[in-house]
Protein backbone atom coordinates (compact mmCIF):
# COMPACT_ATOMS: atom_id res chain seq x y z
CA UNK A 1 0.00 0.00 0.00
CA UNK A 2 1.43 3.33 -1.01
CA UNK A 3 1.81 6.26 1.35
CA UNK A 4 -0.87 8.13 -0.58
CA UNK A 5 -3.40 5.36 0.04
CA UNK A 6 -2.52 5.36 3.72
CA UNK A 7 -3.05 9.10 4.02
CA UNK A 8 -6.37 8.91 2.16
CA UNK A 9 -7.49 6.05 4.40
CA UNK A 10 -6.58 7.98 7.52
CA UNK A 11 -8.40 11.08 6.28
CA UNK A 12 -11.52 9.02 5.52
CA UNK A 13 -11.40 7.41 8.98
CA UNK A 14 -10.99 10.83 10.56
CA UNK A 15 -13.88 12.26 8.55
CA UNK A 16 -16.15 9.36 9.45
CA UNK A 17 -15.17 9.64 13.16
CA UNK A 18 -15.90 13.36 13.19
CA UNK A 19 -19.27 12.71 11.52
CA UNK A 20 -20.13 10.17 14.23
CA UNK A 21 -18.99 12.62 16.90
CA UNK A 22 -21.08 15.42 15.35
CA UNK A 23 -24.11 13.12 15.24
CA UNK A 24 -23.61 12.19 18.90
CA UNK A 25 -23.22 15.81 19.94
CA UNK A 26 -26.30 16.70 17.88
CA UNK A 27 -28.40 13.97 19.58
CA UNK A 28 -27.09 14.95 23.00
CA UNK A 29 -27.82 18.61 22.34
CA UNK A 30 -31.44 17.76 21.44
CA UNK A 31 -31.81 15.93 24.74
CA UNK A 32 -30.24 18.85 26.63
CA UNK A 33 -32.52 21.40 24.99
CA UNK A 34 -35.62 19.31 25.65
CA UNK A 35 -34.46 18.89 29.25
CA UNK A 36 -34.26 22.67 29.63
CA UNK A 37 -37.79 23.08 28.25
CA UNK A 38 -39.28 20.59 30.72
CA UNK A 39 -37.23 21.92 33.65
CA UNK A 40 -38.65 25.38 32.96
CA UNK A 41 -42.10 23.86 33.35
CA UNK A 42 -41.09 22.31 36.66
CA UNK A 43 -40.80 18.74 35.35
CA UNK A 44 -37.44 18.10 36.93
CA UNK A 45 -37.56 14.29 36.87
CA UNK A 46 -38.11 14.29 33.13
CA UNK A 47 -35.29 16.82 32.82
CA UNK A 48 -33.00 14.51 34.78
CA UNK A 49 -33.87 11.65 32.45
CA UNK A 50 -33.09 13.78 29.39
CA UNK A 51 -29.78 15.08 30.72
CA UNK A 52 -28.72 11.62 31.85
CA UNK A 53 -29.40 10.42 28.30
CA UNK A 54 -27.39 13.34 26.91
CA UNK A 55 -24.46 12.49 29.20
CA UNK A 56 -24.63 8.84 28.10
CA UNK A 57 -24.73 9.74 24.40
CA UNK A 58 -21.87 12.21 24.69
CA UNK A 59 -19.82 11.79 27.88
CA UNK A 60 -17.70 14.83 26.90
CA UNK A 61 -20.66 17.24 26.90
CA UNK A 62 -20.07 19.50 29.90
CA UNK A 63 -23.47 21.25 29.59
CA UNK A 64 -25.28 17.94 30.12
CA UNK A 65 -23.38 17.32 33.37
CA UNK A 66 -23.87 20.92 34.53
CA UNK A 67 -27.62 20.75 33.96
CA UNK A 68 -27.83 17.34 35.57
CA UNK A 69 -26.05 18.75 38.64
CA UNK A 70 -28.55 21.62 38.85
CA UNK A 71 -31.45 19.16 38.66
CA UNK A 72 -29.97 16.88 41.32
CA UNK A 73 -29.48 19.93 43.52
CA UNK A 74 -33.13 20.86 43.06
CA UNK A 75 -34.13 17.31 44.03
CA UNK A 76 -31.95 17.40 47.15
CA UNK A 77 -29.59 14.72 45.84
CA UNK A 78 -26.51 16.65 46.89
CA UNK A 79 -23.90 13.88 46.52
CA UNK A 80 -24.97 13.24 42.95
CA UNK A 81 -25.02 16.99 42.26
CA UNK A 82 -21.44 17.36 43.46
CA UNK A 83 -20.30 14.47 41.27
CA UNK A 84 -22.00 15.95 38.19
CA UNK A 85 -20.58 19.45 38.81
CA UNK A 86 -17.10 18.00 39.24
CA UNK A 87 -17.47 16.09 35.98
CA UNK A 88 -18.64 19.25 34.17
CA UNK A 89 -15.68 21.20 35.56
CA UNK A 90 -13.26 18.45 34.63
CA UNK A 91 -14.54 18.69 31.06
CA UNK A 92 -14.55 22.49 30.96
CA UNK A 93 -12.33 23.82 33.77
CA UNK A 94 -12.52 27.41 32.50
CA UNK A 95 -16.29 27.59 32.15
CA UNK A 96 -17.24 30.50 34.44
CA UNK A 97 -20.95 29.62 34.47
CA UNK A 98 -20.33 26.06 35.65
CA UNK A 99 -17.87 27.40 38.24
CA UNK A 100 -20.45 29.90 39.50
CA UNK A 101 -23.12 27.18 39.81
CA UNK A 102 -20.66 24.97 41.67
CA UNK A 103 -19.65 27.71 44.11
CA UNK A 104 -23.31 28.39 44.94
CA UNK A 105 -23.93 24.67 45.35
CA UNK A 106 -20.94 24.29 47.68
CA UNK A 107 -22.34 26.91 50.06
CA UNK A 108 -25.56 24.92 50.47
CA UNK A 109 -23.80 21.58 50.55
CA UNK A 110 -21.42 22.71 53.28
CA UNK A 111 -24.40 23.86 55.34
CA UNK A 112 -26.15 20.54 54.87
CA UNK A 113 -23.02 18.65 55.89
CA UNK A 114 -22.61 20.71 59.05
CA UNK A 115 -24.42 18.07 61.07
CA UNK A 116 -23.02 18.57 64.53
CA UNK A 117 -22.18 21.75 66.30
CA UNK A 118 -19.35 22.06 68.74
CA UNK A 119 -19.92 20.79 72.25
CA UNK A 120 -19.97 23.41 74.93
Amino acid sequence: MSARHLVIGLLLALASASTVWADQRGDAKKQVEFGIQVAQRGLWREAIYRWERAAQIDPTYAAAFNNLAVAYEHEGQLAKAREAYEKALALEPNNALVRQNYDLFKEINDRALQKDGRQL
Partner: peptide, 20 residues
Protein backbone atom coordinates in the same frame (compact mmCIF):
# COMPACT_ATOMS: atom_id res chain seq x y z
CA UNK B 1 -32.50 29.41 59.14
CA UNK B 2 -29.74 27.11 60.40
CA UNK B 3 -31.46 26.78 63.80
CA UNK B 4 -34.80 25.92 62.16
CA UNK B 5 -33.04 23.47 59.85
CA UNK B 6 -32.05 21.47 62.93
CA UNK B 7 -35.73 20.67 63.49
CA UNK B 8 -37.33 20.71 60.05
CA UNK B 9 -36.46 20.44 56.39
CA UNK B 10 -35.71 23.76 54.76
CA UNK B 11 -35.85 24.81 51.15
CA UNK B 12 -33.12 27.16 50.05
CA UNK B 13 -34.08 29.29 47.09
CA UNK B 14 -31.51 30.20 44.49
CA UNK B 15 -30.82 30.62 40.79
CA UNK B 16 -28.64 28.42 38.61
CA UNK B 17 -27.56 28.53 34.99
CA UNK B 18 -28.52 25.81 32.56
CA UNK B 19 -26.26 25.43 29.52
CA UNK B 20 -27.09 24.28 25.98
Amino acid sequence: PAFLNTLSAQKIKGTRTLLK
